[in-house]
Amino acid sequence: MTTLTPARALVLLWSGITCLVVVAGGVLGALLGGWTASVLAGLSAGAVCLTGSVFVRRRVMTRFAVAEQEAMARGYAEGLSHGLLAVVAQYEAAVFPMSAGGVTAEERLARRGAAYRIAAEAALPTPVRVAAAAALAALDEADPRRSRDAIGRLFSAVNPGTGGSAE
Score class of each variant (00 low, 15 high):
120 A>Q: 09
163 G>Q: 04
90 Q>E: 13
36 T>D: 13
146 R>M: 12
131 A>R: 06
33 G>D: 02
46 G>E: 00
56 V>A: 15
6 P>C: 06
37 A>C: 11
118 I>D: 01
8 R>K: 13
76 Y>N: 05
164 G>C: 11
74 R>K: 15
50 L>A: 15
107 E>S: 09
15 S>M: 08
98 M>R: 14
137 A>M: 10
165 S>Q: 07
124 L>N: 08
81 S>P: 03
41 A>K: 01
9 A>V: 04
96 F>D: 01
52 G>S: 05
127 P>K: 11
58 R>V: 14
114 A>C: 06
90 Q>G: 10
69 Q>W: 08
144 P>W: 00
141 E>T: 13
133 A>P: 01
110 A>C: 02
150 A>H: 04
60 V>D: 03
101 G>R: 07
151 I>S: 01
104 T>N: 02
77 A>I: 08
26 G>A: 12
76 Y>V: 11
98 M>H: 12
164 G>E: 04
78 E>I: 07
42 G>C: 05
78 E>C: 05
165 S>V: 05
35 W>R: 10
51 T>K: 06
125 P>L: 07
115 A>L: 11
143 D>T: 10
81 S>C: 03
8 R>V: 15
74 R>L: 14
165 S>I: 00
56 V>T: 09
124 L>Y: 10
70 E>P: 05
25 G>K: 04
91 Y>H: 11
50 L>H: 00
66 V>S: 04
144 P>F: 05
103 V>M: 12
30 A>H: 10
95 V>K: 01
99 S>T: 02
